[in-house]
Structures are given as structure tokens and as C-alpha cells.
Design a protein around this nucleic acid. Structure first.
Length: 604
DNA sequence: AGCACGCCGACT
DNA sequence: GTCGGCGTGCTC
């Protein structure tokens, strides 16, 4: 028997009503619809339900439960609950609402994110073993988290491996019966960390990565959602999970590509967890060698190390070396020869497709856009603003070559010095040549080499210097402790401020300068940026876009990018633009255009 | 998303 | 007079 209200002798039934957002990728159902909850059905915020909608049955998410006296019109009934557990809770819902607005995505696209791949089913409860006592690198943070409090966002500077830091930071939190999350940029790093942590924190570690089978991932999710005192280790998806008793979150290397979704909604783990941390009131700790300017702008408290953040790095001026036709200069070749006898080296080369810079084959001038100064590829127009590029600004030449050499060429050249001692990444040779893809898990090298730093220093986007600093620091971080071990970076610009920072072993001074320059230029994080990538746009699209954001943002474009049109919306604060874009984007999609919206794009 | 509805042409 | 093609718009 449900709740009743006595009113002047008559009994008027109160209806329990659920507000449900259908699982439809459209802005039109963002507010959800009201359904009657039948007697005895246990519905709460976050419940996955079946609802009748427009003559069929669809999945939906409960975003509110209330009691109504006599509805204006008779409501349809919730048909049933799917799964044994709600997939989000009220505070997490607040973060999801923020994300729907910020990333200009339908609510349903966000509501689906915290849920496991299969419907959650309750199984046998897991028992926890005792946690060994640990000394936290941030004792105040650990103490506060263990007590369920909130703390200012922290950044731990260092080069990893991070397993011991995670264990030391989280141990007392788990011992206090609360849970924690640690997010890594790639699957292999998360797996390695989970393995290492499981040894010290016996049985409390739960792994969650996109590479796992649906049933395993669902089982991990259920444990995280039901058993407090669990440490959840994984890739970006675990940042969405409704972890039971969540009291502390950590993100390792938030500047890496894997931290941001590629498809709409292009959510960044850093921003997602910053929101969750402030709404759900738990401390948030970042770690890595180089914080992003976004994180600095957000006011994270930095913890520098007394020594160098990464190992000793030597910058080699390629212009001083004898033979300009070779890719590896004499100094690096000598170091490689030495290591090949009894050590292990990694040689980092640039890879095509990763926004390389191009220079004129005849005179060597770097190709830049005459309009916006962005470095350009060999195509006919600017990737950033669409301006036609034409021939070389220095000599009118028309042929351009990418900076940097591929893996094959570098291996070939190294073999002339060390024979079979050199090979591609994963071949197990003493000298391995690879790209950024091969860096995860690489550690304890005797030598690490950047073949051509210029390829990154001159990359065609506004974050080039920051990204170069982060990459070189990561590479130097793969060098193990011990005398004689070092990183070497070849360049034609040895005085470049990024390389000076790399030499110094500390990132903070340069990062602060870069953040100030962004502020002056109005680029993120100082300004707000949205990229719209539209396949088969309607002829009216440009007009509609400009009209919609006329007084709240500046529109650049459209620039063609492989068959699609790309607009940039720029402004100090695009909150209004985001709201106004929703119906516009819906119209485009209804008309058959495929629209990808990238909020806070990082590759421009 | 997917279903109803409505407008229009084709066929009984 | 009825059936079914697909373009629009709405879904508690």
C-alpha cells in the first residue's frame, strides 16, 4: 500500500513519479518525461528503466523521483527496472548535467557514461584484507581523504613509475574503509599499475579498461559501486564510475592524449574529475613531469622535487656536427655505440600523421600560414583558418618535406654503427627505435635519444611548446638512476626555451610563462574554444552558426579538413554559445550532417 | 531513435 | 476509393 493523504474525509492517492531521460541521442528529450511508478517498484535516481515512448519501449535513466498529488494528465507507467543497481547518484548527475552543457551533447550521451557495459547484477560480496601502513607523499591529503573531507587540488611533480606513490597516497584511505580511483592514460599502464598494486594492497584493487570483456568490466564496476575500501585502477572510463565511498582520485599524466575522448562528447578526465571533486567533496591529486597550462590555470598546488624531475639531459646542436646528410649526429652515435655493448637505449623519432611541420625543400624555410602564422602541412590551405597557402615565402618553391625521419631510416642508419644491435621497438635489441606510441612502460634505460626535436618544437598548433616539453620530459623520465645514464636531444635550435627547461630538469618556470602568453593571446585556458567538425554541412550552416553565436563568440572558418568542414568558435566565455548551439546542431543532424563538437580542443 | 501522421501518386 | 512511398515532428 502506497502513501495516502487524508483530505476532508476523502482519501486522495499520491502518485510516485519518476522523471526519466530516454536513451535517445537527441537534445529534444534532455529534460526527460514523467512516468508513474507502480506500487512496490523500487525506483531511485540513476535507475535504468524501461519506459513506453511514442508507441514503443525504450531504455531510460531516472533523473528525479518525486511525489505528485493528482497529475494534470494521466501518466504512463514505468514498465520495469533493468539491472540491480542505479548507475549514477544525485551528485554525479550534477556533473553529468554540467558535461552535457559544456561538451554540447545530448543528456543521454552523458547519462550512459557511468554505466557498465552490461546490466549490473549483484553477486557474492567480496571480503577485504588488511592494508599495510604507508607513508603518504601528501600526508594532509591522505588524512583528509581518509576522514571523507575535501582538499585543494594537488600536482605531484615526478617521473614515475607511479605504483608506489599511488599505494602510499591511497593506503590509509582504503584502511579507513573508503575508496579511491587512479586513472592512467593507456591500458598497458593501468594494467601494469593494477598488477603491482595488487601485490601490496592484496585483493582491494579493481581494474577497469576499455580492452576488457563486457562481463569482466561489469563485474569490476559492480565491485567498485558496492564495496567501500576498493582501489579502482583504470583508463579514463573509471573516472565516470559511481564508486562506493569515493574519497580520493588520482590522475597520472593528465596531459596525455588518452585523457580526452575523441568522439562527442569529447570529455577530458581532468575536467570531469575536477567537477566531481568539487561537487562530491573529495581530494584530487595529479601526477607527472609536466602539468598542463589548464591545470596551472585551475590553481593546482604544485609539489616540486628537490632534485631534478627527470634525469640529466644533454642538448646536441646538430648544426655543429659534420655531416648534415645523416639523421644521427656524431655525439649521439658515440653514445649509442657505447650503450650497445652492455646497456639499453631508446631512440625517439617523429611519426607521420602527428601534425609534423613542413619545410621548403629548396631553401629550408618553415611553411607558415600568412594569415594566422600557424605552421602548415604540404596541403593547399591552412589547417587552422583555411587561408590558401601557395608557394614558399622564402624562395617561391613549391615542394615541401616533413621535418624528421621515420623509424626505418633511423634503424638503417644506426645499424651502420652497431650492426644487429639496433632494431624497432619491441624487438628486444639493445638499441630500440620507436615513436611516442612505444613510450608507455618504458623504464630504466641507460640512454634515451630524441632524433629531431625540431619536429615537435615547430608543430603546427598553439600548444606545440607545451607538448614538446611534456614529451621530452617523459622521454628523459625513462632513463634510470645512476651515473653516466642520460637523455640526448638533437636539434638545430639548442637555445630554444623548451630545451632550456629540459636542461634545467624543472618544468614550472616555463609552464607559468606559457600560461601567461596564452592569457595574452586569449587561447585556452584563458579563452574558451569550441571546434565544430561537420561532414556534409547544409548550405545554410555557416549563416546559422554565425547568427546563433553572433554576440557571444567569434566564428572562424569554415576550413576544409579531409572532406569535412571545420569551424572554430572563440570567446572569453562560451557558456551562452554552448546553449544556443544545441538546437542548431540538432537541426544539422536532423538534416543528415554528421556533427562532431570538440570543446577545449587540444590539437589545433 | 523510431513511430505516427500526412501528403501525394499509383493502382484496383 | 485504397494502399503505400517517404518527409516531418514528437515522444510524459
Amino acid at each position: 500500500v502506497g502513501p495516502h493523504l487524508c483530505n476532508a474525509g476523502r482519501v486522495r492517492p499520491l502518485t510516485r513519479v519518476a522523471q526519466v531521460v530516454p536513451d535517445l541521442a537527441t537534445f529534444a528529450v534532455d529534460d526527460g518525461f514523467a512516468y508513474r511508478i507502480p506500487e512496490g517498484m523500487d525506483v531511485s535516481v540513476g535507475s535504468t528503466v524501461r519506459i513506453p515512448l511514442g508507441g514503443r519501449r525504450v531504455r531510460g535513466w531516472v533523473v528525479d523521483v518525486r511525489t505528485d498529488a493528482g497529475a494534470a494528465r494521466p501518466l504512463k507507467d514505468v514498465m520495469g527496472i533493468s539491472g540491480d543497481l542505479p548507475v549514477f547518484h544525485a551528485p554525479l548527475l550534477r556533473t553529468l548535467r554540467w558535461a552535457a552543457l559544456h561538451y554540447v551533447a545530448p543528456m543521454a550521451a552523458l547519462l550512459a557514461r557511468p554505466a557498465p557495459p552490461n546490466l549490473p547484477r549483484l553477486g557474492a560480496a567480496a571480503a577485504h584484507e588488511a592494508v599495510p601502513a604507508t607513508a603518504s607523499p601528501l600526508p594532509a591529503v591522505t588524512r583528509t581523504a581518509a576522514a571523507g573531507g575535501h582538499y585543494r587540488t594537488q600536482y605531484l611533480l615526478g617521473s614515475g613509475p607511479w605504483e608506489d606513490t599511488v599505494a602510499a597516497l591511497m593506503g590509509d584511505v582504503l584502511a579507513a574503509g573508503r575508496s579511491a580511483v587512479a586513472v592512467f592514460a593507456t591500458r598497458v599502464e593501468a594494467e601494469a599499475a593494477a598488477r603491482a598494486l595488487d601485490a601490496t594492497l592484496g585483493g582491494r584493487v579493481v581494474l577497469g579498461t576499455s580492452a576488457m570483456a563486457g562481463r569482466d568490466l561489469t563485474a569490476a564496476w559492480v565491485r567498485a559501486a558496492t564495496v567501500p575500501g576498493t582501489l579502482v585502477v583504470g583508463t579514463s572510463e573509471v573516472a565516470w564510475w559511481p564508486v562506493a565511498g569515493l574519497a580520493l582520485a588520482m590522475v597520472v599524466e593528465e596531459g596525455r592524449r588518452g585523457m580526452k575522448g575523441r568522439q562527442t562528447p569529447t570529455v577530458h578526465v581532468r575536467e570531469l574529475l575536477r567537477r566531481r571533486s568539487s561537487i562530491e567533496r573529495f581530494p584530487l591529486v595529479f601526477a607527472g613531469p609536466v602539468p598542463t597550462s589548464e591545470l596551472l590555470a585551475a590553481g593546482a598546488e604544485l609539489h616540486d622535487t628537490p632534485g631534478r624531475v627527470w634525469r640529466l639531459t644533454e642538448v646536441v646542436d646538430r648544426r655543429q656536427e659534420a655531416d648534415p646528410a645523416t639523421v644521427i649526429g656524431e655525439r649521439v652515435r658515440a653514445a649509442v655505440r657505447h650503450v650497445a655493448k652492455s646497456g639499453a637505449a631508446f631512440v625517439l623519432v617523429h611519426r607521420h600523421g602527428y601534425a609534423p611541420a613542413f619545410r621548403c625543400i629548396r631553401c629550408g624555410t618553415l611553411r607558415r600560414c600568412p594569415q594566422c602564422e600557424a605552421a602548415a602541412d604540404r596541403g593547399p590551405s591552412c589547417r587552422r583558418c583555411g587561408t590558401p597557402l601557395g608557394s614558399c615565402a622564402g624562395c617561391e618553391g613549391g615542394r615541401f618535406a616533413p621535418l624528421g625521419a621515420g623509424v626505418g631510416r633511423v634503424v638503417e642508419e644506426l645499424r651502420r654503427s652497431v650492426g644487429e644491435g639496433a632494431g624497432g621497438a619491441g624487438t628486444g635489441r639493445p638499441i630500440e627505435v620507436g615513436t611516442e606510441r612505444d613510450l608507455p612502460l618504458l623504464r630504466d634505460r641507460d640512454l634515451a635519444v630524441v632524433v629531431d626535436a625540431d619536429a615537435w618544437l615547430l608543430a603546427p598548433h598553439y600548444r606545440a611548446e607545451e607538448e614538446a616539453l611534456r614529451l621530452f620530459a617523459r622521454l628523459a623520465g625513462t632513463v634510470g638512476r645512476g651515473s653516466g645514464r642520460r637523455a640526448m636531444i638533437q636539434t638545430t635550435q639548442p637555445g630554444h626555451r623548451v630545451l632550456e627547461a629540459i636542461r634545467s630538469g624543472h618544468p614550472v618556470d616555463l609552464m607559468q610563462r606559457l600560461a601567461e602568453e596564452r592569457l595574452a593571446a586569449g587561447f585556452p585556458p584563458a579563452g574558451d574554444l569550441l571546434a565544430l567538425d561537420v561532414a556534409e554541412p547544409t548550405t545554410e550552416a555557416d549563416n546559422e552558426l554565425r547568427h546563433a553565436v553572433a554576440d557571444v563568440g567569434t566564428v572562424l572558418g569554415p576550413a576544409p579538413s579531409d572532406g569535412r568542414s571545420r569551424w572554430l568558435v572563440q570567446g572569453r566565455d562560451l557558456h551562452q554559445a554552448r546553449i544556443r548551439l544545441r538546437p542548431v546542431v540538432q537541426r544539422w543532424r536532423d538534416a543528415g550532417s554528421r556533427v562532431r563538437i570538440d570543446a577545449d580542443p587540444i590539437d589545433l
